[in-house]
Design a protein around this nucleic acid. Structure first.
Length: 475
RNA sequence: GGCGGCAUAGCCAAGAGGCUAAGGCAGCGGUCUGCAAAACCGUUAUUCACCGGUUCGAAUCCGGUUGCCGCCUCCA
């Protein structure tokens, strides 16, 4: 079995074979830090987080690079708006990014370079492009000459002729071709700037990724990822620059995740449906969010609707109830020990090998949950039952680990689901439960039901079992 | 105008030539229970937008139609 990934460049699934056996170089376009991250960023981050977790589980040594764009027009605008320095704005949003990623359990990348740390290297790359005839200076700006790069448009499947005809932007008269893009942008007064052979200015957007991927992964590396929207022009331009300046093939596999809409509409500030990660986390547990974002194939568009998220939440609660039940029987789990002979593991791997079919994997998890509940319902609890159960739980948690799910002890999960606060006062609940138990003992069903209703009003649900009555906060 | 994607049960969603079309949510019936809750069992698509074609055989491949959506300008 081998991992296949859909390669945007070839428009088909390909067997993944790294450049160096056993090692994977992965570069993912991170965020431009001019605002809080939204759930679209979360999806991208989670998709590549799962890819990295899976590659590592499969034994690859992964070098994961994810950048920050910390100099850009939008940051400059935002800084002006807030009356702050651009670097201060960038720094604050980088901190927010880390806080958000932490909460949705996206592991840090191995390298997280910032554009502003690589200005001298960017200038050198521009000089190289000028020397090789792929760029030209116009006053204080430098442009990339797309016509000089034969393969321009190949990655995104377009050609210069069509784009010239359909171009909707007012063309800068200094450009030789309408699609030529900025490598270096002369600074206006008050803008962040760095000295350069063309005067003070700042780099164009695409350049940083070319420089930083080359710095950490070399001129040819395995996987380049990002949101679908980055395919053009960003990735096309990155590729054009990198191949022209560094030689090499640049990225061998291009992986793009699909977009997130909110209640069927594209997220935008003007529509007021810009859903930040932290707003989403105010409403949903981070694992609910994660499960939801992984419940559809990563390449498909995903609509974030409250109804659908709540559906998944019900499913996750069922999983955790089963985990809670298992813990009562088996005690807390140790570190996952996995048998690759196991059918569940094999099925899960097969699904993940198929271009990361996380939705299929989640289906498998639910099947396993049902099977385990069935076993526990059957009652007999000798070692011939407990051992397989223990193993199944281990496998379940292993799969959860790859998806970044089922990471909480069940009690903690339910605690968080109910708001994290103790809620109604426990001694009072216990007193009522006891009173009800006495009422039930003398078959005073009216009183018993009265108490149950009273507790229900307090958000407490009772479960009468053979071992007596237990209660839990409603979620 | 150019390029690309998607249409699977009430809702969400796997499946991409051939065993009974995964799974979740919701609903209904049942087991359990004093009644519930939870869990489990059963049930809910003779059919995969529509029309043709290829094939012994198609949600799955090809052509067309309709309807959504994305990119082509900053965007994860």
């Amino acid at each position: 079995m081998s991992l296949t990934l859909y390669n945007t460049a070839s428009r088909k699934k390909e067997i993944f074979e790294p450049l160096t056996p056993g090692k994977v170089g992965l570069y993912v376009c991170g965020v431009t830090v001019y605002d809080l991250c939204h759930i679209g960023h979360a999806r991208s981050a989670i998709v590549f987080d799962v890819l990295v977790r899976y590659l590592r589980d499969r034994g690859f040594e992964v070098t994961y690079v994810r950048n920050f764009t910390d100099v850009d027009d939008k940051i400059i605008d935002r800084a002006a708006q807030l009356g702050k320095e651009t670097h201060a704005v960038a720094r604050e949003y980088i901190e927010d990014f880390y806080a958000d990623m932490d909460r949705i359990r996206v592991l840090p990348a191995d390298q997280e370079p910032r554009a502003t740390e690589y200005i001298p290297q960017m200038i050198r790359m521009i000089e190289r492009l000028l020397e090789r005839g792929f760029a030209y200076a116009a006053e204080k700006d430098v442009y990339y000459a797309v016509e000089a790069f034969k393969e321009y448009g190949r990655l995104s499947g377009r050609n210069l002729e069509d784009m010239r005809a359909g171009s909707r932007i007012a063309v800068d008269s200094r450009k030789r071709h309408p699609m030529d893009f900025t490598l270096w942008k002369g600074a206006k007064p008050g803008e962040p700037q760095w000295p350069s052979p063309w005067g003070p200015g700042r780099p164009g957007w695409h350049l940083e990724c070319s420089v930083m991927s080359n710095h950490f992964l070399g001129p040819t590396f395995d996987i380049h990822g990002g949101g679908r929207d980055l395919l053009f022009p960003h990735h096309e331009n990155e590729r054009a620059q990198s191949m022209a300046a560094n030689g090499g093939r640049f990225a061998r596999y291009w992986v793009h995740n699909g977009f997130v809409t909110v209640e069927s509409e594209k997220m935008s500030k003007s529509l007021g449906n810009f859903l930040t990660i932290r707003d989403a986390l105010d409403q949903y547990h981070s694992e609910v969010l994660r499960l939801f974002l992984l419940s559809k194939h990563y390449r498909s568009p995903l609509d974030f609707s409250q109804k659908d998220v709540l559906n998944l939440q019900s499913g996750l609660i069922r999983i955790y109830r089963t985990l809670e039940r298992l813990e009562a029987i088996l005690g807390p789990p140790g570190p996952p020990a996995v048998s690759h002979q196991d059918a569940f593991i094999q099925d899960f791997v097969q699904l993940m090998d198929d271009d990361l079919n996380t939705a299929g994997g989640i289906g498998l998890i639910f099947e396993k949950i049902r099977e385990m509940n069935r076993i526990m319902d059957a009652g007999a609890m000798d070692e011939t039952v407990l051992n397989p159960l223990r193993q199944d739980r281990s496998h379940l948690l292993w799969a959860g680990n790859i998806l970044g799910l089922l990471q909480e002890p069940p009690a903690a999960f339910f605690g968080q689901m109910t708001g994290g606060t103790p809620g109604p006062d426990t001694p009072e609940i216990q007193r009522l439960v006891e009173e009800r138990t006495e009422a039930r003992a003398r078959k005073d069903w009216t009183r018993a039901d009265e108490i149950r209703d009273q507790l229900k009003g307090m958000g407490v649900v009772l479960e009468d079992g053979p071992q007596g009555t237990t209660w839990r906060l409603d979620v």
